[in-house]
């Protein structure tokens, strides 16, 4: 996941797209250095544990769980486990094109 996400963020840097992580590894103090080490430059909500507030409220039971939201704020895709780099690219590109049109 991570190498592809880095490429994705770089490729769409000037497009109406954002990757938003919801991370369950720990608090800010412990997660920030790891994000920096790994070169993760996109924003992460700090959910602290797998049973953190947002994972619990959104009923997340498998990691990664991915939601793709369009520019209008509508859920367009939902995956438990990655659908694969190609599917991700294709769906995101479609919605970005839609947002720009």
């Amino acid at each position: 996941m991570l190498p592809h996400e880095k490429a994705l963020v770089k490729r769409l840097a000037n497009d109406p797209f954002a990757l938003l992580g919801v991370n369950s590894d720990g608090d800010c103090e412990s997660v920030l250095p790891r994000l920096q080490e790994e070169g993760i430059n996109w924003r992460n909500a700090i959910d602290v544990t797998p049973s953190g507030d947002w994972a619990t409220k959104w009923n997340v039971q498998g990691w990664p769980t991915l939601y793709l939201i369009d520019a209008e704020g509508v859920i367009r895709e939902k995956w438990i486990g990655s659908p694969g780099d190609d599917v991700l690219d294709q769906k995101i590109d479609e919605l970005v094109a839609e947002a720009k049109s």
Partner: peptide
């Protein structure tokens, strides 16, 4: 983030 396409990724 309204106005942008957002991929929300629950991960660790």
């Amino acid at each position: 983030y309204k106005g942008k396409v957002v991929l929300v990724d629950f991960w660790g």
